[in-house]
């Protein structure tokens, strides 16, 4: 098996995410450009020009190339199951040199930069198992500025969904210009503390503009978008109509005593890309 070729594919996957924004995000940003004025419009204008330039010159759109975060669905009949993790780690090292990526993995005790974007538990991989023999990989390079605005609320169940809404709105308004708005906000409700945050982050993979399939949850997403945008924080916190491009909610059943709410914040650079690795080793980046 030509594993070197699969590594080339994974590097290409990361490069695509770092240099080209998905169309759904660009459409939402263009819509924001239409409705904004003054300073807010100059910010969206710079963002759109930057996206164009990055794509044309095949350069990372943001200097913070993030922590490489992967969501992997492994076909249980894939002959590469035992190799995928090592292939991903090797490819992240290779991508760091070739694209290049900013070395972003620092030891919390020694402050030492690992220099290749790997380290303890990093790249961060979430595994899931599916039927068949294909391996589906989604990469979400996650920047630090937006990640720092993540929040966990262990609310009292008595506050209900209204309390959840207030918590999310309050925290996103408090975040102000820090996470590089307009942002995409992922909200995980229920489960335990870790699951709520995980669901929030996973919901960032859903394309901008797509609503939750449950109509009631979809209408809460719409309400949150409106109420946050009414705050006037605007692009980069400099004032304007667009603070969020979207809000995505995912839920899990909760313990009777708990109402965990995990907020994952993603900057406008909602970088994500997908690939598939077939059993014969052939791959496609989508």
């Amino acid at each position: 098996m030509d594993y070197e070729n699969i590594k080339i594919g994974i590097v290409q996957l990361i490069k695509k995410a770092e240099t080209e924004l998905p169309n759904d995000v660009i459409i939402a940003l263009k819509q924001a450009y239409k409705i904004e004025e003054g300073v807010a419009k100059t910010q969206i204008d710079a963002i759109l020009k930057n996206i164009d330039l990055a794509k044309k010159t095949k350069r990372p759109m943001c200097q913070d190339t993030g922590i490489q975060t992967f969501f992997i669905e492994v076909g249980i009949k894939s002959p590469h199951i035992n190799k995928v993790k090592d292939l991903i780690i090797d490819s992240v090292k290779k991508a760091t040199k070739e694209i290049p990526l900013r070395p972003n993995t620092v030891d919390p005790f020694t402050h030492e930069n690992h220099k290749d974007n790997t380290g303890d538990h990093i790249p961060y991989i979430t595994w899931d198992y599916i039927e068949g023999s294909d391996i589906l990989i989604t990469v979400l390079p996650k920047g630090g500025g937006s990640e720092n605005m993540s929040r966990l609320g262990m609310l009292k169940p008595g506050v209900g969904i209204e309390g959840v809404k207030d918590f999310v709105i309050e925290e996103i308004i408090k975040a102000g210009g820090n996470p590089c708005p307009p942002t995409i906000v992922g909200v995980g409700i229920g489960g335990g503390a870790d699951l709520a945050l995980k669901l929030g982050k996973k919901s960032l993979l859903r394309p901008v503009g797509n609503r939750h399939k449950d109509k009631n949850i979809a209408s809460i997403e719409e309400e949150l978008i409106k109420r946050i945008n009414d705050s006037g924080i605007g692009p980069m916190g400099l004032g304007g109509k667009t603070t969020v491009l979207d809000v995505h909610i995912e839920k899990a059943h909760r313990h009777p005593a708990s109402l965990p709410v995990g907020i994952a914040v993603q900057c406008w650079a909602n970088r994500r890309a997908k690939m598939v690795i077939h059993s014969n080793g052939k791959w496609e980046v989508k």
Binding site: Q43, I47, N50, L53, A54, M61, C62, C180, M236
Partner: peptide
Amino acid sequence: TAYTGGAGALAAD
């Protein structure tokens, strides 16, 4: 002063 966050390629030029 504020420069547009994330506009890394534009700033580099």
